Simulated scan of single mutants.
Amino acid sequence: MEAIIFVDKLKFRYDQEDNYILNDVTFHVKHGEWLSIVGHNGSGKSTLVRLIDGLLKAESGHILIDGQELTENNVWDMRRKVGMVFQNPDNQFVGATVEDDVAFGLENNGLPYEEMKQRVQETLDLVSMSEFANREPARLSGGQKQRVAIAGIIAMRPEVIILDEATSMLDPEGRLELMKTIKEVRNQYNLTVISITHDLDEVAMSDRVLVMKSGKVESSSSPAEFLGRGEDLKHLGMDIPFTSQVLKRLQKTDFAISKRYVSENELGDELWALLSKK
């Protein structure tokens, strides 16, 4: 698939500090791909996506979005292609009600009223928030707020959606519900998803994992390859998957499985197969 985002030799530092936050970063994101970007705090993840969204300007290097280079002259046009959902949704709300908030960007872009009304309804239906259309955003739960924030972005019909640790403030149930919503939205609109995350379930749902370390791209791999790195995950600010911990303990038993990572369903299948042979 053709790359929708291409980052080439990107360098960035704040206020001419000695140390670069990003140093010669190069990677690509394919059309329709879900890319997770992981790494310890300070590795440059959030800075990277803010550069892609035009919120920051690189010292050197190039960012191409859908084949066109991002510049100061076209940054506003390019932002229509890339929508971002932040960690705290309260920072994104501007409307008095949920439907007002989703309609805000459409109204600013001069969309005809009937089309705007239809898009608001469609996106609220998609994120299962239609029944809250007249509710004040401040009165919603954390997961509901994030779904409204996503609706506001999706209504603008971007080609790329960036989740900057959008699930980190949610409880496990809210996190899984939001990821299910993102998956449905992605399939509905053939969106490209870039996710900054520390969540293992979020990583497992993605197509590819980009590891940032000390301002550089440390590796690019499949979720299974990344989640199978064992103790090394701790140095990247991640937990070790439960199934990997089980696999490690099984190595000294009659139920040893020669894999470093499997999903919970796969682990169950593997154990059942071994039990059937006993």
Results as ranks from 00 to 15, higher is better:
Glu107Val: 08
Trp76Thr: 14
Glu72His: 14
Gly110Leu: 07
Val75Arg: 12
Gly83Trp: 05
Met78Trp: 10
Glu69Pro: 10
Val98Cys: 05
Asn74Leu: 09
Asn91Ile: 10
Thr97Ile: 10
Gly110Cys: 06
Asn73Lys: 14
Gln92His: 02
Glu107Tyr: 08
Gly105Ala: 12
Asn91Ser: 15
Gln87Ser: 07
Val85Gly: 01
Gln68His: 13
Val102His: 10
Arg79Asp: 00
Ala96Lys: 15
Arg80Val: 00
Thr71Phe: 00
Val85Phe: 00
Phe104Lys: 02
Ala96His: 14
Val82Gly: 01
Asn74Ile: 01
Asn74His: 01
Gly67Pro: 04
Glu107Ile: 10
Met78Gly: 06
Phe86Ile: 11
Thr71Ser: 12
Asp100Cys: 04
Ala96Gly: 13
Asp90Ala: 11
Val98Ser: 04
Val82Trp: 05
Gly110Asn: 08
Arg79Val: 06
Gln87Ile: 08
Pro89Ser: 09
Gly95Asp: 00
Thr97Met: 08
Ala96Trp: 12
Glu72Trp: 03
Leu106Arg: 02
Met84Gln: 10
Glu107Trp: 10
Lys81Leu: 13
Thr97Lys: 03
Leu106Phe: 04
Glu99Ser: 12
Gln68Ile: 13
Asn73Arg: 14
Val75Asn: 07
Gly105Val: 03
Leu70Ala: 06
Gly95Lys: 03
Lys81Arg: 12
Val94Trp: 06
Asp101Gly: 11
Asn74Trp: 05
Val94Glu: 09
Asn74Tyr: 06
Gly83Tyr: 02
Glu99Arg: 15
Arg80Cys: 09
Phe86Gly: 07
Asp77Glu: 14
Trp76Gln: 14
Gly95Asn: 06
Arg80Ala: 02
Val82Thr: 00
Asn109Ile: 14
Leu106Ile: 08
Asp100Tyr: 09
Glu72Val: 13
Glu107Ala: 12
Glu107Cys: 09
Thr71Glu: 05
Asn74Gly: 07
Val98Lys: 05
Ala96Asp: 15
Asp101Tyr: 01
Asn73Trp: 11
Gly95Gln: 04
Phe104Trp: 11
Leu111Lys: 12
Asp90Phe: 12
Glu69Ser: 11
Trp76Lys: 15
Val75Asp: 03
Gly83Asp: 06
Leu106Tyr: 03
Phe93Val: 02
Arg80Glu: 11
Val75Met: 09
Gly110Val: 03
Val75Tyr: 09
Asn74Asp: 00
Val102Glu: 10
Arg79Thr: 07
Leu111Tyr: 14
Arg79Lys: 13
Phe104Ala: 10
Arg79Gln: 10
Gly110Pro: 02
Ala96Val: 11
Asn88Met: 09
Gln68Asn: 13
Val82Pro: 03
Asp101Leu: 07
Ala103Ile: 07
Glu99Met: 15
Phe93Thr: 04
Phe86Pro: 01
Val82Glu: 03
Val102Ala: 07
Pro89Ala: 02
Phe104Asn: 05
Phe104His: 06
Met78Val: 12
Thr71Trp: 05
Leu106Gln: 05
Trp76Asp: 14
Thr97Pro: 10
Asp90Val: 08
Asp90Arg: 12
Gly83Gln: 00
Val85Cys: 00
Val98Ala: 09
Asn73Ala: 13
Val102Met: 03
Gly67Glu: 06
Thr71Arg: 09
Arg79Leu: 01
Gln68Gly: 06
Phe104Glu: 01
Glu72Ile: 13
Gln68Trp: 09
